[in-house]
Nucleic acid binder design. Structure first.
Lengths: 197, 197
DNA sequence: GAGGCTACCAAACAAGTGTTTGCTATGACA
DNA sequence: TGTCATAGCAAACACTTGTTTGGTAGCCTC
C-alpha cells in the first residue's frame, strides 16, 4: 500500500463541507435564505442540525461561503471568455455577456444567490461584505464598455446599468430551450449596436 | 352640530385596515416577507398581533392585499401617462417607461413588492395569483412595442424583456438626485432608438 | 335600554427557529 | 499502544413564529 497516505480524512472529509454548501445553495436558491432552515440543509446531506456547526460557525457564515462561490463562478466564466483576447470591442462585450448569461441561467444554484434583488432578503449586516464582492465583478464590464465606440451623447454609466438590467432580468423569464444564452447576448447587444452600422 | 354624523366608526374605522396595509408594505419592502412578523406589523400601528386577524384572515391574505395595491399603482400611473394619447410610438413608450419608473422608484413601498424577484420569496402557493396580476400589467407594454417601427430583425419579445429588465433593474442602483425617472426613461429609449435616425 | 355589531385586548397554543453543550466513534501518527 | 484531532451524534436551550379563542368596551338601531 501507499506508505504516505494521500491525506485520507477521518469520515466524510473535506467533501462533506462541500456537500453542505451545495445543499445550502440549492435550498437558498429555491426557498430563500429565511425560508431555509439549518435542519433542512443538514438533513439534505444526512446530518443532524448541530453537526453543521462544526463546519460553519453560523448560518450567515454559510451564506457568505455560498455567495463567494457564486461570484467566483461568474468571474471564472468571464475570464475564460475574454482569455482569447477579442479586440473588437463589440465582440468582446458580447462574449462577456454570453458568459455572464450562461452562468446566470445554466450555472446552477450558486449563481442565483448573487442577484442583488436576492441579496436584499439577507440580514442587512452582511450587505457590505457581499456587495463588495459583486462590485469587483462588475468592474470587468465597466472596462469593456469604456472601450466601446458609442454615440457621444450616450451616458456610459447608464449604458452599463441598462445592459446589466437586461441581462440579469433574464433570470425571471428564461426557460431552457427557446433561446440560448448566446442568442440572448447577441440579440441584446444587437439592439444597442445597430446604429453604428 | 352635524345632525347626521358622517359615518363615524366604532374605534379606528376603515382607516385602521389601511394603516395595517401601509405598515405591512413598508416592512415587507425593507425586511422581506419572511423577515417581517405579524407582531411587527401590528405593533407598528399600536395593535396586538391577534387583532390583526380581525382585518385579514392570514398573513398571506395581507400580502395579497398589499400586492394588489402595488399593481394598481402602476396601472393608474400608466393610464394617466397614456391618457393624453401620444400617437408617435417612441414618444408613447417613453412616456410609459417614465411613468413606470416614477412609480417604481418614487412610488413608495407598495411598488417595491411587485418586483418578480421579490415575489420569489413569497410562499409558492400564491405565485399564480400574483403573477396573473402582473401579466395583465405587462400587456400594456406589449401593445406599445408592437407599434414601434423596429428593424425587421429585432425580436419584439426580446425587446420587451430587455427593456423591462433595464427599467426594473434601476431599483437596485437608483438613488434620489442624480437622475430623474424621466431622465432614465429618455436615456434608455434613446439607446434603443438611435439607429432609426 | 336591550340587542347586536364593530374593533380590539389578553392570553395562550403548537410548531419551528438558530445555536450550544457534552459526548463518542473513527482513523492518523508517534 | 496510546494520544490526538476529526467529524459527527443526541439532546436540549431560549426564543420567535402564525394563529386561535374567549372576552369586552364602545357605538348604532330599534
Amino acid at each position: 500500500m501507499a506508505t504516505t497516505a494521500p491525506r485520507v480524512e477521518a469520515r466524510g472529509g473535506e467533501n462533506r463541507r462541500e456537500a453542505l454548501l451545495d445543499a445550502a445553495a440549492a435550498m437558498f436558491a429555491t426557498k430563500g435564505y429565511d425560508g431555509t432552515s439549518i435542519r433542512d440543509i443538514a438533513g439534505a446531506v444526512g446530518m443532524l442540525p448541530g453537526s453543521l456547526y462544526y463546519h460553519f460557525k453560523s448560518k450567515e457564515d454559510l451564506l457568505i461561503a455560498v455567495y463567494r462561490k457564486g461570484v467566483a463562478r461568474f468571474e471564472a466564466a468571464i475570464d475564460a471568455a475574454l482569455g482569447g483576447t477579442v479586440d473588437e470591442p463589440w465582440q468582446a462585450i458580447e462574449a462577456a455577456c454570453a458568459a455572464h448569461l450562461s452562468i446566470l441561467l445554466d450555472g446552477g444554484d450558486y449563481a442565483r444567490i448573487v442577484n442583488p434583488e436576492f441579496v436584499r432578503s439577507f440580514p442587512p449586516a452582511m450587505l457590505p461584505t457581499l456587495n463588495a464582492e459583486r462590485d469587483r465583478y462588475e468592474r470587468h464590464f465597466e472596462k469593456l464598455i469604456a472601450a466601446l465606440p458609442l454615440d457621444p451623447q450616450t451616458d456610459r454609466w447608464l449604458f452599463k446599468v441598462a445592459l446589466f438590467g437586461s441581462l440579469n432580468w433574464s433570470q425571471t423569464w428564461y426557460r431552457k430551450g427557446r433561446y440560448t444564452p448566446h442568442d440572448i447576448a447577441a440579440a441584446f447587444i444587437g439592439m444597442l449596436r445597430l446604429k453604428q452600422a
